[in-house]
Design a protein around this nucleic acid. Structure first.
Lengths: 173, 173
DNA sequence: TATTTTAGGTTGCAAAAGGAAATTTAGGTG
DNA sequence: CACCTAAATTTCCTTTTGCAACCTAAAATA
């Protein structure tokens, strides 16, 4: 058993939060609805026309997003037929995940020039790639990641000699 | 129409890459399979037991992931019954998106302590949150983002006075 | 060589989810 | 009231998913 390629053992854990996130966002239209919401779409008919999604599916997805606390549903006071869907804080915080996905699609999707580009309002420069970062913000790649149990963590600032570096011995190889 | 809340107009574009990414990763099991792959799972039976996924679905999803160039399929030389599935570069680069999702799930999922934690091998400190960053790496929030067409971009370093700041006039409000 | 085991799938069938169009409900307007 | 609109819901149909059993080629074993 050579250690030529040790299992990356990322993303593991008895209680990985990924399934949880996927429960809320893993359905086919969820991200598209979210994208529209980020673009200022607030009403049922807007979503429907924007996405060309079946009305029943849209209805169902909006309900689920509301149930999951990703969107808030508010019957409008001035015209109580209208319902306004708004991203909650929880929903807004999906932006990094969505942009990461979008950037990946941009990079790897066959020649997507992606003409409109996201820029920082401040300097009007395009945003950088969404990356994994160390605690100090330095970008790091997947090879530099390891699982660690909470108990094994050391207080910030005093990086102990990498002694008991047993990483969660999970799956494979 | 008051401008109290202008449409964020993020993520838009005639050719947003998000649908493209979702075509490859938007199906229910895709991210879970990817997660397993990141954890060093390489073989059909491993995936199957790891995920408790139906064999036909697994078969189908693996094929699709291979078709999309996210995983590579290789019949092993030493035992030609065995097929090894390996993440490609394209697949590996989904890590930020996946971790962003996971972190979101951690933060917002009802009390998920997420005991094993990802750390930087270098200093053994937990990784930071995946964020949107400006070109210089400074983290920025969704309020600081604007669409800009390629033509309107200015060369880095000389942030022109924010003159023709017409942002893509899309959807809503 | 014949038999069994293993890895990686298919196949068939019932259940669930998805989609298009018509209908319903609650609320407005002339 | 008759009519309209926004947001769902219901109906009907197609596709996808999930489960179990079956299949096949390649080892392993007898």
């Amino acid at each position: 058993m050579g250690k030529l390629r040790e299992p990356l053992n990322l993303l593991y854990g008895d209680n990985c939060a990924l399934p949880l996130a996927l429960e809320a966002m893993g359905e086919r239209w969820s991200f598209m609805i979210l994208r529209a919401a980020f673009n200022g779409v607030h009403h049922f008919e807007e979503f429907q026309q924007e996405l060309s999604i079946a009305r029943n599916i849209l209805s169902n997805r909006l309900s689920k997003l509301v149930d999951h606390g990703i969107m808030a549903r508010e019957v409008m006071a001035e015209d109580r037929r209208k319902v306004r869907y708004e991203l909650t804080e929880k929903g807004l915080e999906l932006l990094p995940a969505m942009i990461a996905l979008r950037q990946w699609g941009e990079k790897w999707g066959a020649g997507v020039p992606s003409t409109p580009v996201l820029v920082d309002v401040r300097d009007e420069q395009p945003i950088g790639p969404v990356t994994i970062t160390a605690h100090d913000g330095r970008p790091i790649g997947y090879k530099e990641l390891v699982w660690k149990h909470r108990a094994e963590l050391q207080p910030l600032g005093q990086a102990r000699a990498r002694a008991d570096e047993r990483m969660a011995p999970v799956a494979a190889e």
